[in-house]
Amino acid sequence: MIELREVSHAYTTKAGPLPVLDNLSLQIPENSFCAVVGPSGCGKSTLTRLVSGLMRPDEGQVWLHSELVSSPRPTVGMAFQNPVLLEWRTILQNVLLPLEIVRSPMSKAEATQRAHHLLDLVGLTGFADKRPSELSGGMRQRASLCRSIIHKPDVLILDEPFGALDAFTREDLWCTMHDLRAEEPFTCLLITHDLRESVFLSDQVIVLSGRPAHAQYVLEVDIPGKRTLEDLYTPKAVEMLAELRRQIQLAQGRTAPEPAANPAPAAAPVRGPIPGAMG
């Protein structure tokens, strides 16, 4: 369970304080998958840094499993758009890196076995002893995903991990994410700018408003059972995507064309409860 309570944060810049998050509240239930979308520069990466404990908010609180987050914690895994593999290590050594930092009940042999298992799962069988420079962008991102969960974190934070990949590789990795989740439980916070990705992967999509950001809209994605890419083309999914697109346009400050059937008010429309979001 991840919970943000009325979080506000500003950066100090040469031109003065830059408010980035404004009274942001959200809840991500245990072992559920939450995608966050929003205009570029609205504070999405800032959000991940607050949840991971790399930064503390100016105001408000971040809670993980009813514990206040005030510093980084080893039960969190992270992956970024830039896979940042260490070029001087093999893929296996890269995947094992977190275990050199955090204490783990796993023995070295168990850890290696787990690394191989994860590499198999993401389709990198046989690449354990290769160097990162021998891998394509998509493969590097797969390795980075393995690294982010090698130490069995209960919270996974992904900041646009598939953003720099081509469409086919990206869809492939979406399915890999589902496989990983089926394998072991974790609560996931995914930042993305791909609406289809957000709907396909998550149980909940949160749209952030423009900077300074608050939760503008929450979409519950109820596509039951094992999802396939075809699920994105059902009328229900198409409607969800259309609504998300409208919300993004709204967040970008453009006025969305009024939908005929479901007229959206100019102020932030909210479907589903956002605790605390309304102040």
Binding site: S52, G53, P74, M78, P98, I101
Partner: peptide, 9 residues
């Protein structure tokens, strides 16, 4: 690079 390790403490 820094964040990868820092986030683990």
């Amino acid at each position: 690079y820094r964040d990868i390790l820092r986030s683990l403490g």
